[in-house]
Amino acid sequence: MAKRRCYWFVRLSSSAAFDRGNIRRTAAIDLLEDARMLFGVLPVNKPTGVTSRKAVNAVVRAICDRKVKVGHTGTLDPLASGVLLVVIGRATRLVDESHLNSKRYSGSFLLGKRSDTLDVDGDVADVPSSHPVSHRDLKEAARQFVGTITQSPPRYSAIHIDGQRAHDLARRGKEFEMPTRTVAVHQLDVVSASDGEFRLDVECGTGTYIRTLGCDIAVACGTSAVMSSLCRYEVGGISLEECVRLDQIQSLDDVTNGLLSPLRLVPHLEQVSVSPETIEHIIHGRSFELCSVASKVAVVDQRGELVALAERVLGGANSTNEQPDAQPYRSISVFRSNNDMPHETKINRPQSAES
């Protein structure tokens, strides 16, 4: 009897282990399905001393699925902190469109200094000055840098030169020319200036280097400057208060709890709600009609979730008499397919009404 009892004990234990294995496998499958349904933007408060790539890698580890695409909408240097928008899943296809959003920065600069990187992370040296620079001098100089301006980006930057990062070439001592670029500075204010330091508050477009901006203002005043700190506190209406701290992103739940609607990446686009029948047209690549005159729109379903980006067909004629004001459109990026579940977007945080 003892052997028989032992036999049944082994059988029961094996069955329980098998059940536990099934539960683990089922949970793992559910976890993968949840991860692959992610579609949105995770605003991260990047700390100083961390590269943007490392911040993205932390999100990838939390998701635990290498097949889920993850990226960001704009690099923050290691010295800088603040809003880093991490795009997940199909939202990675909205990066180019998100570059139309303005960004807000607060940066501090040390007058009478220079460095090869234009910030305190480089080799900093003193620059003799023939006269003191006042707050008024800096504000007067800053006026010429508002609007559409031409900048020369720092040699130590993430810009690609012949397929290589400029900062990599600079560290290897390579000689190369930095191309100038045209950028937009919407607002620029010298908030304070005292004891050889000044602080800027900037609203600008994508591609603007705040390091260069502060240095150019100092040069216009007859001296030089290096950036000592930088915080990006808003991107396209997404503020620092909405961000998740990087050290709080440890699991898939942390990601989904902080995820915002992908529509937050395109606040400049008009949102047009369409019927399920129109969504079928969009999925199958057919043109459709909308009651809008905008050149580009964000098409949403009746739940307000993003279906596609669409552009107006110029010169197209209205094919129906039911909606005489309707205009023909065609999709340029579709985020929905026939295989999607009815409610594909995992969003635990409500979409802000602010743009």
Rank of each mutant, 00 (worst) to 15 (best):
M1V: 10
K3S: 12
R5D: 14
C6Y: 13
S13P: 02
R24L: 14
A27H: 08
A28N: 14
D30E: 09
A35C: 07
M37F: 08
M37P: 02
F39S: 05
V44C: 05
N45Y: 08
T51G: 04
K54D: 11
A58K: 12
V60T: 09
V60W: 09
C64I: 06
H72V: 06
G74Y: 03
G74T: 05
L85D: 00
L85K: 00
T92V: 11
V95D: 03
H99R: 15
L100N: 15
G107R: 00
L111D: 04
L111N: 06
G112N: 09
G112I: 13
G112C: 14
R114T: 14
R114M: 10
S115D: 00
D123W: 06
D126L: 07
D126C: 08
S129V: 10
S130M: 08
H135P: 08
A142T: 10
Q144M: 12
F145C: 11
V146W: 05
T148A: 12
Q151K: 09
R155W: 02
S157R: 01
A158F: 10
I159H: 06
D162Q: 14
G163T: 05
H167S: 11
E175I: 10
V183W: 05
A184I: 14
A184T: 13
Q187S: 14
L188M: 10
L188Y: 03
E197R: 15
E197G: 04
L200N: 01
T206W: 08
G207D: 06
T208L: 08
T208N: 04
I210A: 06
D216K: 01
G222Y: 13
V226P: 04
M227H: 04
S229K: 13
R232H: 05
R232V: 09
G237H: 02
L246I: 15
Q248D: 11
Q250H: 13
V255E: 00
N257W: 04
Q271C: 12
V272I: 14
S273G: 07
T278E: 07
I279D: 03
I282G: 02
I283W: 04
L290F: 07
C291E: 15
C291Q: 13
A294V: 03
S295E: 13
V297I: 05
E305A: 10
L306V: 04
V307R: 00
E311N: 07
R312L: 14
V313T: 01
V313I: 15
A317T: 14
T320R: 11
N321L: 12
N321K: 14
Q323W: 14
P324S: 10
A326R: 01
Q327G: 02
I332F: 06
R336Q: 06
N338C: 15
S352H: 05
